[in-house]
């Protein structure tokens, strides 16, 4: 569509982005409100941030969430990369259809069902619930997301470099490490972040699979939000939003730079689309 945006398009874009961003902006603004009321502006203040940083329960929950998210993202990266490789590179093996189904199905599964089914598994295996059961649950669905990201990358992958390495006598594992891995590394970084963000955000599956002493940050936020809107939660949410926004912006700027570099001149790993 070459013809530029008309007044109608500009209005749609303005209203659309206002709709997408205003609620978050309002949330952020009111986290700096001196008044306890969430709708009346009582002057600028950082008191709610102070309250958050001295709230041991919230800090504990944040530690649990970050720990779960870190282990989840790392484990899901390994498992998801393997699954993605299997989906694209191994054409036939018994159970391929089942394998594909198991990778895709968790993506469309309602969270309440995933959470319930995993809890029932842990109960029947008599596993004590806590940090590790939440991590296993998160790793399972995050693996599927990473697998899809890796699969998408491998489908547009130029295999001639791998073939060259193999022809020159590099064994498969070495070829993977020296040729394939560097080429798909940006997608892997994206997959790791996606897994981290998904784990950090999850409320439902964690609520089902957690146990005493492993309350995650979303569970705390949810518990307080049910009782009503408070500036303290606004402050927690603002910190989370800021963290995610900074990370996503940095990543996309880095990727733009990389793409620009590749366009100027193909470096050692530059030719791939």
């Amino acid at each position: 569509m070459r013809r530029g945006p008309g007044p109608f398009d500009l209005a749609a874009l303005t209203l659309g982005f206002a709709f997408l961003y205003l609620p978050i902006v309002i949330l952020v603004v009111f986290s700096f409100n001196a008044s306890k009321l969430v709708t009346v502006w009582g002057g600028f203040s950082l008191r709610w941030y102070e309250a958050v940083l001295t709230n041991e329960q919230l800090l504990d929950a944040a530690r649990v969430s970050l720990g779960v998210a870190f282990v989840t993202a790392t484990a899901a990266l390994v498992l998801g990369t393997m699954a993605g490789l299997v989906l694209v590179r191994i054409q036939h093996f018994p159970g391929k259809a089942l394998f594909t189904g198991m990778v895709v199905a968790p993506l469309v599964m309602p969270e309440v069902i995933t959470g319930l089914s995993l809890l029932l598994l842990f109960v029947s295996l008599d596993v004590p619930r806590g940090f590790w059961t939440v991590t296993i649950a998160h790793t399972t669905f995050a693996t599927c997301y990473v697998a899809v990201v890796v699969q998408a990358r491998l489908l547009t992958f130029d295999r001639s470099l791998e073939e060259a390495a193999m022809d020159l006598g590099a064994p498969p594992l070495r070829t993977f490490r020296l040729v394939t891995l560097p080429l798909i590394a940006p997608s892997l970084a994206g997959g790791w972040l996606l897994a981290f963000a998904l784990s950090l955000d999850d409320l439902v599956i964690a609520s089902f699979t957690t146990g005493p002493g492993a309350t995650t940050l979303p569970m705390r936020i949810y518990g307080q939000a049910r009782l009503g809107v408070t500036p303290e939660i606004n402050a927690v949410c603002t910190m989370l939003v800021a963290l995610v926004t900074i990370v996503v912006l940095v990543i996309s700027i880095l990727q733009k730079r990389r793409l620009a570099r590749e366009r100027i001149g193909p470096g050692p790993a530059g030719r791939n689309p």
Partner: peptide, 13 residues
Amino acid sequence: WTSFLIRVYAWMG
């Protein structure tokens, strides 16, 4: 990318 829970919570206020 921003938390789903936070976006829903924002509408409560």
